[in-house]
Write a protein that binds this DNA or RNA. Structure first.
Length: 639
DNA sequence: TTAGGGTTAG
């Protein structure tokens, strides 16, 4: 770089030349050379231009150099000289430097003008410097800069960012006039600290005050609506946008798509999604997630396939979509594809793969995925290990689940609950209770999920008294309010133990309305114990809630059949056929030497079907000899 | 020679 046209008599360079040369300065020594040249030409004007241009740069070298220049100026500088520097310091990675510089100006007896306040206040907001912010507020009041709406909005924002939302609102209320930016600042800050109702109230007030909301404000309102999870707001927003013909930019569309996708309104989400000219990965991932939650896997896959460069979150969304909707094989395929494309899984991605394997229910696959987690370095990951416990439990690998649990370096309440649930699922209620006691010894607070596991174990193993005690301890000892599923466990506990009256009492004493599952539990208990009258009562309650409930309809027709009310039987059966209601069939699956064998009721598809039925006959006759008589009551008409 | 507001996925 050569900024010296003549070594002996340097001539002054023009402002544009200063700007141009400065833009080519790559290091501190370049800047110093230029500075030296300007000093030798003794031009105040050029020095100011030099300062301006230094201050307008975003590089920290230039900003630091202009700071050092200011400290060498003997008399207090005029605001027009440093306002640009304040602005760029406040936007830099070190906003605190703005406040330090401001303090130096004050110390040197310099004054601020209305343009100086906003960047310093902004810096105070960024670093939560409430004390300095308040000082500036006072100073603005004294110098009448506060009459400037920009300064007032910055003061408001400073209070809100420093956690003083009440003071922010006070500043807002004191403003004689508010434009759309002021309204938005206040609304956005309310949203940020979770005061959504206040934000909505203010939005309504704003509309009454004849200020038209713009896309930024609507963006905030939409995101607030999404956060409430209250779908009534969604419709209101939609109508407002349609009625007012609002212009929509990418931010607003993003907020809209994520809100509607999150709420499961996928057709509206798609409407906005197609309006986007550039679709960010965020938005596409939100669409994939929304479609998969709405059970529309093919639509989810379409969006996923249309998405160009995918990141880990996007891949994971698709993997869990398949894992959670009974397509575990597809989940594993997508995972393998992701790895082929060179995306390394993290804990969450790995957890989704593990839960896909859990739903596959095949122990061989479970072992394979377990190895995979080790190969990827997740041996000590809490979430992955928790998922492994659940996976092994669902795949019949109780010992493997226990092994994972015992080897975990750290455990949380999820780990304990998962292991307790694993024991309960396998009918090992005593082990579940022992583990529950150990959990207590190790001072891990149980949560509602833990109690579902413990109570489930008790009900399946007939530990009625133990179950009663534990249920009572929930609120007495642990401050966990029983939910619907806990009452369900209690109904099941009494029902299985043929204490049907007590089961009914649980239902009657519940603080919430019993659902189909609760009545269903009572109904099956009645069927098993031949309590037809109470069973019919439960079945009727179910049919009130869900007229096509297969189990209740089958039970009703069986009851009528026992009583030889054949007309009623035919009526129920015909109704079921007309409405295409079929008893959902339970599937049994056995994995043998890496092969999975599936059986339905009356199923003859298996290649060794004849041998299997012959063996079954043998077993049943041995059972009869041992005094066990199969109950044909519930298959009277069903078969 | 300058100024105040935004969204978002597993």
């Amino acid at each position: 770089m050569n900024v010296r046209p003549n070594m002996l008599t340097p001539s002054p360079i023009t402002s544009t030349a200063v700007q141009d040369v400065l833009s080519h300065c790559k290091s501190l020594s370049h800047i110093k050379q230029l500075h030296a040249h300007i000093l030798r030409t003794v031009s105040d004007h050029n020095l100011n231009t030099f300062l301006f241009n230094l201050s307008s740069s975003s590089s920290s070298i230039s900003l630091n150099y202009s700071l050092s220049l200011f400290s060498s100026i003997p008399s207090p500088p005029e605001p027009f000289l440093f306002n640009l520097l304040l602005r760029n310091l406040s936007r830099s990675a070190e906003p605190r430097a703005t406040i330090l510089f401001y303090q130096r100006i004050r110390h040197a007896g310099g004054r601020l003008d209305r343009f100086s306040f906003t960047p310093i206040l902004k810096a105070a907001s960024k670093v939560s410097a409430l004390f300095e912010g308040m000082e500036l507020h006072g100073l603005a009041l004294k110098t009448a800069a506060l009459s400037d709406p920009f300064v007032k909005t910055a003061v408001l924002d400073m209070y809100a960012c420093c956690g003083r939302i009440v003071e922010a609102r006070k500043a807002f209320d004191e403003m004689p006039q508010r434009d759309v930016v002021t309204w938005n600042t206040m609304i956005e800050r309310y949203c940020r600290c979770g005061l959504l109702d206040e934000a909505f109230k203010l939005f309504e007030e704003m509309k009454c005050s004849n200020v038209m909301p713009d896309e930024m404000i609507l963006c905030n309102i939409v995101s607030a609506c999404a956060r409430t999870g209250d779908t009534r707001y969604n419709r209101a927003v939609y109508d407002f946008l349609k009625e007012n013909d609002v212009r929509m930019d990418a931010h607003l569309l993003t907020a809209l798509v994520t809100m509607y996708a999150g709420a499961g309104c996928m057709d509206i989400a798609r409407e906005f999604h197609t309006k986007m000219s550039v679709r960010s990965l965020f938005v596409s991932t939100a669409m994939v997630s929304g479609f998969s939650k709405a059970g529309r896997l093919e639509d989810a896959r379409d969006i996923f396939d249309q998405t160009g460069k995918k990141d880990l979150v996007c891949w994971t969304t698709m993997i869990s979509a398949y894992a959670e909707s009974d397509h575990p094989e597809e989940a594993l395929r997508v995972f393998e594809e992701m790895c082929r494309y060179g995306t390394e899984p993290d804990e969450i991605a790995m957890g989704s793969v593990v839960s896909a394997c859990a739903n596959l229910g095949v122990l061989e696959n479970a072992k394979w995925v377990h190895e995979l987690t080790h190969r990827n370095g997740f041996e000590s990951s809490l979430t992955v290990n928790n998922a492994l416990i659940n996976m092994y439990a669902k795949c019949g690998g109780l010992d493997a689940a226990r092994d994972v649990f015992e080897k975990m370096p750290t455990r949380n309440v999820v780990s304990w609950s998962s292991m307790i649930n694993a024991f309960s699922m396998h009918g090992e209620a005593n082990d579940a209770l022992t583990l529950f006691a150990r959990m207590k010894q190790e001072n891990v607070e149980p949560n509602d999920v833990t109690f579902v596991g413990v109570l489930y174990g008790c009900s399946h193993s007939g530990l009625v008294e133990e179950g009663k005690k534990i249920f009572a301890s929930m609120s007495d000892e642990y401050n966990v309010t029983p939910k619907l599923e806990h009452y369900g466990c209690m109904v099941d506990l009494f029902g299985r133990a043929n204490r049907l009256q007590e089961a009914l009492e649980v239902i009657e004493s519940m603080p919430m309305a019993p659902n189909v599952v609760i009545w269903g539990s009572l109904m099956s208990a009645c069927r098993v114990h031949g309590e037809l009258e109470l069973g019919e009562f439960a079945a009727r309650r179910i049919l009130e809630l869900e007229p096509d409930h297969d189990g209740a309809l089958v039970l009703m027709s069986n009851i009528y059949a026992r009583e030889h009310r054949w007309d009623d039987v035919r009526k129920v059966r015909r109704g079921m056929e007309e409405k295409n209601v079929f008893k959902e069939k339970g599937v049994s699956r056995i994995d043998l030497n890496g092969k999975s064998h599936e059986f339905l009721i009356g199923d003859k598809r298996h290649t060794e079907s004849d041998e299997i039925y012959a063996k079954l006959k043998e077993v049943v006759s041995e059972l009869k000899l041992a005094g066990c008589v199969p109950d044909g009551g519930s298959v009277l008409v069903d078969v």
